[in-house]
Structure formats: structure tokens, C-alpha cells
């Protein structure tokens, strides 16, 4: 917990959190905040610059750009979060379970992770949508499957390291229950790492979602999304060269804030908790394992 508290004190992390809080509010209430109907077309005023009636101008169908940006935040951000939630579920549970795997099963599960990591996000999501039907949930499930290895690896590494920590063993000897140890000792240690991974996964997922919506995958065209707006602007670069900058800036801001936050959490971690340097093995555990290996 102290790691997250230290993080929250760093100025960079505060800025990032503020940006993310704004984005989250927009994602949940964006449609209500929009000054005009994001789908209403006004063919008399297409491709206009900023004005009193349209603060950020209009697009090629005369729709209000500001309203579309606000209304599109929800679909763009919440779908990215859906993919990350799926990835967490698919990664954390097998990651914890994999501590109990034998050598052969471990090897296979690590190769499965490698297999998932060789698949490019967009192509796999396109394939999933082509086979399962064009829907956002299909695309996000595909994305979640490909993001799961991030969580699997992190959880597995942490669980392997902590399972043989001396203080865990001491707690066990004193009669602590498995769930209490998980909650008090292991979860608090794993939390910062999971937080970093989640922030990275969200950033990756957001980039992938904007690529997919740019291609028109998962979302039907009239619904506004950041990626879809970029696709619409592409045909009118000669008239409105600055138009793609607006959705692009929102994507950049959100992804940048997530990356900065992840870095801040990592910097706040004490040096000995850096990945790879797990706690020392205890004599009893080692003996126990050697005994198991001999059997």
C-alpha cells in the first residue's frame, strides 16, 4: 500500500491521475455533456472551422466535432477497459495456478504464452470478428486473450517468488489461513506490479481499440469513436489538415498519462522489490521441494 501512497505524492503521478480522472468522467458522462447531438447532420455547414455555434467546427457531414469527441470517449475508453478486464481474468487466475504446475505443464503454458505473443493484435481481432461476427465484445475478447500473457507472466513471477518468502512461511507456521496470507502478505506486494501492468495493458488496449475502430471493426459507423473520427477525417485532409489532431490528441493524452502513471508506480517501488530479485528461499521450503523432487 505504501508504494501506491508514495506514488500518489509524486507530482507527475498526480498530473497523470488528474488527466485520467477527467477522461474517466468524460467516458461515463460524455454523451450528456455534449452540447449538440453527435449524430445530427447539417449539410449546409460541412467542414467548418471553430465558431460560436460549433466550438471545434464541423466534420464532413456537418456534425459537431466537440460533441462527437465527448460522446466518443465512452465507447473508446470503456471498450479498452473491457479488454483489460478480460485479460486480467484470463491471465491472473492461470498465473496463480501455474505455481502448482509440474515442469512439463509449466513449459507448455509458457509456450502458449509465447504463441499468444506472436499474434499481432489487429490481425487477430480482425480474424476473431470475421469468424465470430462483427461486434465489440468479440473484438475485445480477442484483445483480452492477447493481453492475458502480460498478466500471466507478472502474476506467475510474483507468486513463484512470494510463495517461498520467509515471512509467508512464518505466517503459515503461526497458523495464518491461506486467504489471510494472500490478502495481507501477498496481495499487497503484488498490487504495485499488477497496477503497472494494468496501466500498460490499458494503454496498449486503447491504441489497439483506436486502430480497430479506425478500420470500422466492432463499431457501426455512425456511432462516434476516436478512431472512427480519424478515419472520417482522412478523406478531407486537403480541406481540414488539422482535424485529425483533435482525436489524436485525446488518444495521446490518455495513453501518455497511463504510461507516466505506470512509470511513477515503478519508480516508487523500493529497490529490492524490482522484478527478478525475489525474496530468499527458506531452508525448510528448499528441503521440502528437494524431497518432492526426489520422490
Amino acid at each position: 500500500m505504501s508504494v501506491l501512497r508514495t506514488t500518489a505524492r509524486a507530482p507527475i503521478a498526480r498530473t497523470a491521475l488528474a488527466v485520467l480522472a477527467v477522461v474517466a468522467v468524460l467516458a461515463l458522462t460524455g454523451g450528456l455533456l455534449a452540447p449538440l447531438d453527435p449524430l445530427a447532420q447539417d449539410t449546409a455547414r460541412i467542414l467548418q472551422g471553430p465558431s460560436g455555434a460549433h466550438l471545434l467546427g464541423t466534420d464532413y457531414l456537418g456534425r459537431d466535432v466537440l460533441s462527437r469527441l465527448l460522446a466518443g470517449t465512452g465507447l473508446s475508453v470503456l471498450t479498452a477497459a473491457e479488454a483489460v478486464a478480460a485479460a486480467m481474468l484470463l491471465g491472473v487466475v492461470p498465473g496463480l495456478a501455474s505455481v502448482r504446475f509440474g515442469a512439463a505443464l509449466s513449459w507448455i503454458s509458457l509456450r502458449a504464452v509465447d504463441a499468444l505473443m506472436t499474434l499481432p493484435f489487429t490481425l487477430f481481432a480482425i480474424a476473431a470478428v470475421g469468424v465470430l461476427g462483427n461486434g465489440l465484445h468479440q473484438a475485445m475478447l480477442a484483445l483480452g486473450v492477447l493481453l492475458a500473457p502480460l498478466f500471466f507472466r507478472v502474476t506467475r513471477a510474483a507468486a513463484l517468488g512470494l510463495d517461498r518468502a520467509q515471512y509467508v512461511e512464518a505466517a503459515e507456521l503461526m497458523g495464518a489461513s491461506r486467504s489471510w496470507i494472500l490478502r495481507v502478505h501477498i496481495w499487497r506486494k503484488v498490487l504495485p506490479t499488477v497496477a503497472v501492468t494494468t496501466a500498460h495493458a490499458l494503454a496498449t488496449s486503447l491504441l489497439a481499440v483506436s486502430s480497430l475502430t479506425f478500420l470500422g471493426i466492432g463499431v457501426q459507423p455512425p456511432a462516434p469513436t476516436w478512431g472512427g473520427m480519424l478515419a472520417g477525417d482522412l478523406g478531407f485532409l486537403a480541406q481540414q489538415p488539422w482535424a485529425p489532431a483533435l482525436p489524436a490528441a485525446l488518444i495521446m493524452l490518455t495513453v501518455g498519462a497511463l504510461n507516466l502513471l505506470a512509470d511513477a508506480v515503478r519508480d516508487a517501488e523500493p529497490a529490492d522489490a524490482v522484478r527478478g530479485a525475489g525474496p530468499a528461499d527458506t531452508a525448510v521450503r528448499k528441503e521440502h521441494r528437494d524431497g518432492l523432487a526426489a520422490v
Binding site: 486502430s211 489524436a248 488518444i251
Partner: peptide, 23 residues
């Protein structure tokens, strides 16, 4: 490098088209 890491390839592509091809 930090800025480039936050941009999807297609945003960079659109920027390049706007600058090099259209303008």
C-alpha cells in the same frame, strides 16, 4: 521517443500524409 510511444502508427501515418503528401 516518449511522444512517439503514445501515438498509434496510423496517427503518425495521417500526420505524414498531411505534411508530406497533401501540403
Amino acid at each position: 521517443c516518449t511522444v512517439l510511444g503514445t501515438l498509434p502508427a496510423f496517427v503518425i501515418a495521417i500526420g505524414l500524409i498531411t505534411l508530406v503528401a497533401v501540403q
